[in-house]
Amino acid sequence: MKTTAYDCVQMARSTKRPTGTEFIEKVFSDFIELHGDRRFADDPAIVGGIATMCGTPFTVIATEKGTNTKDRVYRNFGAPNPEGYRKALRLMKQAEKFRRPIVCFVDTSGAFCGIGAEERGQGQAIAENILEMMTLKTPILSIVIGEGGSGGALALAVADEVWMLENAVYSVISPEGCASILWKNSNKAAEAAQSLKLTAEDIYGLGVVERIIPEKGDIHKIFGRLGTDIYSWYRRYMEYTDEELLEARYQRFRKIGIEIDEKGLNK
């Protein structure tokens, strides 16, 4: 049977997949977790710190959905609050200062929709990450490993390259949310998933990610290969000057959208 877009959504959400922290620990060595946004709290839905690869220190950040029921509740099912995004930004600025490359593992249904999250400026926190990441003077790689849920995912994915695992999804809205807004019927999620073009293949086709990482039937054997890919990415980006890096990052996003002809009109 052919895999549908909604099958992909369900695979991406599967609790059998390794979570963000496992990616950090198995792809990198010597992970030291660093906590807190220095403003309000430490958000367990985002894990970050310093780790090494072949002796090179990286700043690594991941959304973390949790590994068992108790842990999932503690991690808020991987839905970050503003303090999570602010912690991530603090660690990224630290990376820029000490000239460490940044790797983010993204797996979230989206930024948390809660009263406290709004009181503490969820929109402002995401906006600030997006704005600041645009000009961080250090290479950034973001990898969508499961769910890439809307602005809450983008807040960790304004990067020089974005990769997606074969069975990951990346979407502006959840298929359920889309179906209930457009068709007042969340049971039409499968249809919405199809229409949203959210599978790795679709997203790659739209020019929004640079690479699809094959899972080869067993995602638990992915870490070694992924590490090699990340390291060669880092070696390539080491060559750029700050100006080249930021110009390429700007253009990476600048070109996404409508195709414009030489007169500046729609094609």
Partner: peptide, 11 residues
């Protein structure tokens, strides 16, 4: 406009 809309936030 799916993911292309989301990318406008970054653009």
């Amino acid at each position: 406009e799916g993911i292309l809309s989301l990318m406008q936030m970054a653009k």
